[in-house]
Design a protein around this nucleic acid. Sequence first.
DNA 1: CATGAATGAGAATTCATTCAT
DNA 2: TATGAATGAATTCTCATTCAT
Lengths: 200, 200, 200, 200
Amino acid sequence: MGTKERKERQKAEMREAVLSAALRLFSDQGYEYVTMRKIADEIEYSVGTIYLYFKDKDEIFFELHKLGFEEFYKRQIAIQNVKDPLQRLKEHGLAYIQFAIDQPQYYDLMFISRIPAKTIKQKQNWTSGDRTYELLKLNIVQAKEAGYFKGVEVEVAAFSLWSFVHGISSLFVRDRLTTIPMESVKSLIAGSLSFLGRAY
Amino acid sequence: MGTKERKERQKAEMREAVLSAALRLFSDQGYEYVTMRKIADEIEYSVGTIYLYFKDKDEIFFELHKLGFEEFYKRQIAIQNVKDPLQRLKEHGLAYIQFAIDQPQYYDLMFISRIPAKTIKQKQNWTSGDRTYELLKLNIVQAKEAGYFKGVEVEVAAFSLWSFVHGISSLFVRDRLTTIPMESVKSLIAGSLSFLGRAY
Amino acid sequence: MGTKERKERQKAEMREAVLSAALRLFSDQGYEYVTMRKIADEIEYSVGTIYLYFKDKDEIFFELHKLGFEEFYKRQIAIQNVKDPLQRLKEHGLAYIQFAIDQPQYYDLMFISRIPAKTIKQKQNWTSGDRTYELLKLNIVQAKEAGYFKGVEVEVAAFSLWSFVHGISSLFVRDRLTTIPMESVKSLIAGSLSFLGRAY
Amino acid sequence: MGTKERKERQKAEMREAVLSAALRLFSDQGYEYVTMRKIADEIEYSVGTIYLYFKDKDEIFFELHKLGFEEFYKRQIAIQNVKDPLQRLKEHGLAYIQFAIDQPQYYDLMFISRIPAKTIKQKQNWTSGDRTYELLKLNIVQAKEAGYFKGVEVEVAAFSLWSFVHGISSLFVRDRLTTIPMESVKSLIAGSLSFLGRAY
DNA sequence: CATGAATGAGAATTCATTCAT
DNA sequence: TATGAATGAATTCTCATTCAT
């Protein structure tokens, strides 16, 4: 019977609808502004219905967290097929920032926002964060083998690169670049990345 | 009679007590989770008492904002007497990060947190932020005159440096460095700064 | 299925319950002393529940205002089919006072109480008040045509009659007639009206 | 020693200052708007000081009540020396309305406002109100003896006259006469009184 | 006499969550 | 599955009143 499957698909669709509404609201007005009622209004269901799909408000945000990290890690993996180690490293950084540009709400949620303390289970996500960091270090090691990063410890290089892209991303996501004309932000970012390249 | 003076001192102390409790809570739990009651409990006074010293919740956060930027700018200014342009630039970055390390709660409030939209008066503070950015650019121009940053636009360099120190600071402030043993964080930061120096 | 209808009826009943509790309290204790909690206690629901039916406290009082004026105007209209102009005028006055006697709480709300300044929309209600006044003047004009009110300006007559019935009504509504035995109040009022009739 | 006297005078002056500030605020924005702090600000003393002169907020309004009735009764008495009974009666009504015009805050407080239930002692004031009513009836009796009010019971006539002047006064005090151009209010009132005179 | 500091009680309003239908 | 009704707990803020100085 496909009935079961259909039901599951419907269930999944409903969950997605809730999540995307929550993410939209979150990004529009900030975490504190998202109320269950607003999510319900957004998807045109009653408040109670949401509780059929999610245990509580926290679960919604935990799920968003998870989805964000999945999408994020997927992009990181996609980079790994680039052959040249240095090129791969650059693409890595670009992909990181591109994620922040494409999905600022997720970036905010994942790397900037304070998440309700209750959610300890996040361990799981951080694993995902850690995986990314390990990937970065791996790429640096390989770049070193190819002759780059002479005299720089792997840890130091990894931390530097991460800080750099996170700095750019969070300034972007939190609109701290209002001083700078929006049109030139992209070229500015590109410039910054190549400037950093001088240190390799 | 020093009566009047004493009273004023007491008044100032009370304001300070409220502010420091608020800052502590704010940084622990985020703006939206700090309630007047929590602040009152923290200082062991009744809620109403806070209203004798601050008009409303916003005023407390506005005041913290202001104090933070004052301290921040003071540190920036202190650097300017360093003669060598490159050295000055390095100290500039170090001072920025040092502020985040010494005053993580302020750094959070000033550069990471979403601030209540109401507070428009903040212009004043952002001016302070802008002043700092102008200072950074000035220092870069002077470093260029001394032969550094060849082939790098001032804007690009400024943005890169700012992103870098902000990245480091916010990873530190938001405890994203738990992976890394706390003892080595300092040397890691130093290493990073000198790594970036290779790009000048 | 009458389910929908029943629900709507229930909703209407709840609104009515809130309104009637509010009116009762309002008239007992005055607008400023009626709190949402008191209304809630009165109807034995939680405070929050009231907000499911009314946007805020003001809306409750605005609604009462509206209902009061509707009932009031309905009574005025009913009089208009009396043929004889003088008789009509007398009935007009009687109906006015009768409304105050039947619905002292509404009368209080509509013609005596100070109403929250916010409620500007009241225009709508005052229009209703104005309509009544216009009706009164019309009736006087017609009574004049029938030979009454000789040598008295319409405006003066209208104001006099209005003052008179309002005076009676508000003394009654605000219990200023305690001196007078309640049984004889009615005949007193009747006597007053016929006394005034001598002036026509 | 005049010391004691001076002290008492000062005390009386202070009480007066509080009372007049309270009355001013009361008339500006309504009873509920008068807070102890606002009274204190108005007289430029601290809140606590008021409690040295008045037991609590109620006492202030009770006192105002009393003063109002004293002034009111004084005016009524002043009329009594008019010889002609009818003329005296007319002056009586005029004086009543004039009081409402001169002291709308007092009139409001005394004859319209709901007073906090606590204040039961008001008996005392009502005595004053009663005295006035007795005076009115006395004047009517004397007017009857002079041939007026033929066929009208004293009670009815008294109630009618009182209702009439109270109606006028309260419409005036509560600004229900906005429809009517303020300039013509006075002549309107005069007209009304003489209109009523036709019924004597 | 005068005050400034402090507070408890209470105001309107919001919201996550539950539950009978 | 979906909902609408209901609520308790929490929020910010106000105010009459007390009291040590």
